[in-house]
Structure formats: C-alpha cells, structure tokens
Amino acid sequence: MKAMKNDLPYHKSGIGYRRIFFISIVIGALLLINNFTIAQDAKDSSSLSAGQMGKLSFTMNLSSLVSNGARSVKVQVSRKENKKTVIVNDVRSPFNLYLNEVKAYDASDGTGWIGKLNLNYEGEAVFVIPDDFNKLTAGLHEYTFIVKMDSDPKYEDAEETITIADAKISIVFSGEDSVKSATAILTAWKDSAYIPVPEKELKLCIKRTFNFLLFGEAGALTDSTGQVSGDLPMDLPGNTDGTIIIFGRLEDDETYGTVEGGISVPWAILPKKNPVTGRTLWSSGDNAPLVLVISSVVIIAIIWGTIFYLVSLLIRIKRLGKSP
C-alpha cells in the first residue's frame, strides 16, 4: 500500500486532497483484488451483474505469427453493439491457451494447457510461445491452438480454435555491390520435408521503426519454386551500424497464418546523426548559450556586489553609532 500512496498525484500539495486519498485507497484495494484491470467500465459491469441480465457474448479473432521460427498467437476480442464493432477489453477472467487439445499440460510432448493471460486495453492479448515449447514440439508440423475463456461475471464463456500448418521463409541475396536483389523462398512442411509453395503473395520488406517498407514488385506471387525476388534499394538509411533487416513476409494466410523470415545485412547507408544540440535558446538551463550566461553573471555580480557593499555601509553606520 505504501507504493500506492506515493503514486497519488496530489498527495503532497495538501489542501483538501484527503478525501481523494481515502477514495483512492478504496479504489486501490479494489484494483488489487481485480488483478489491476483498470476499471474503465466499472459502472457497466455492476449494472449488468449476472443475476439480472444475460451475459454478453463476444467474438474472438485468433491469428498466428511465425517470425524466424518464433511463434506467437494473438487474440483480438470484440463484440457487436448496435451493429457496430466495439473493442472488448474488460474481460476479467484470464484467457487460457491450449495446444492441440483442452487438457492439463503434458510435459512429454508440450501439448495441453500452455498459459493464460489478460487482455490489454486495446482488447488484445499476444501469446509468445516460449522457446522451450518449440523444442518440445519440434516433431509437430501442424499446430492447433485453442483459446478458452470461462466464468467471467459479464461475458459468456468462449472458445476459439486456429490450426496452422508449418511453413517458413528464408531469404538469399545475389548481385553486385551497387545492384543487389533479394529472393525470398516460401517452403512448407509436407510429408517429410519442407517443399516450396507456389502462388502465394509474398512481400519483400525492410524493417523500419513502426512498420516495414516494401520493395520489389507489388503483389508478386511465388513461382513454382516458391520464390519471389526484387531489387534492394541501396540508398536507404539503416541502423547506426549500417545494417538493415530484410525479410519476406506472407500475411494472414489461411493455412500458414502470418509467416516471416529475414536477416540483417550491412548494405544500408549510415543514417544522419541528429545534430548535437549545443547551447541554444531552447536547450536546458545548463546548456544556455555562453554569451547569455557570461553576460548575465557579470551584470548580476556587479549589481549584487554593490548591494552587498551598501549593506556593509549600513553595518558601518551601526558601528559608528556604537562608538562614543
């Protein structure tokens, strides 16, 4: 509770915040009980307590991502209200994730219950499948993920399944110094080996801060060898060490989900450095322009020096008064 107290925004200013403080303790306690789900719709949920009305139903939307072998599953939760889709982010009970079947965790092959988690404020939750599982389930080439939610006071129980076949994307480069092209190859597990997948829309991407920049021909489909290639832009700024992450990406495929695979290459130009923010009028106090600092210090020193001298005159006057 101590930590909570320090968080109070008005705790220090003192006037009339005692009430807020008290209320916040109560709220804080509630929050603790509720696993810190921020009670955005507190009013809603209390008026809709299970006894009075039926529970609400919602839709779960599952998607899968395989990124250089790392697997994750995302749940997006929404529901229809007056024919509008609204985000659901106030589900209180956790979502459970199972692999292949709904049962307790089976340590021998990694199936069964994997984990649980709560929705974030955007009504989403992402399961990142731990590395260990990937090792355990290395023999598996088709994954069925089941997400289950039950016994929430406001919402109906729900279950959703997604089945993903195993696929991966690798990327190779060719060409001279100035002209380079990248080729992404999409392969999927069939019977006993990874074989190329034709006729899929494979995107060639460069990783950027917020998203990926596409290059090559837009909407290109993989050929019979599962390949798509495109010329790399060579004038693009990359990371500070001149590297850039290039990858191929298959998006929201029915069979494979989203698959991406890529590699970091050193062919970008160095990004511009931010100009070193020196002593400017808009920098912090310690970084004030020297002219300004020196001149003001000089002026202040002269004036206040004189003031102190004047005060010393007062003291001398007092001394003179004491001496006979």
Binding site: L65, N68, K74, I114, E122, R208, N211, E260
Partner: peptide, 25 residues
C-alpha cells in the same frame, strides 16, 4: 502472480517490428 507463460505485450501490428520476442520460463 498473474502470468505463467508468455509475456503479455500490447501489440497493434504483429510482426518482426514489434514481436521478435521469446520468453524463457
């Protein structure tokens, strides 16, 4: 207390951009 496996990341766009993360129990 609340989590066993999987970190809970708030992600808008799933992709390398935000998600090349693996957790270790």
């Amino acid at each position: 207390k609340g989590l066993f496996a999987g970190s809970v990341l708030a992600t808008g766009a799933v992709g390398i951009s935000s998600l090349t993360s693996c957790s270790n129990n």
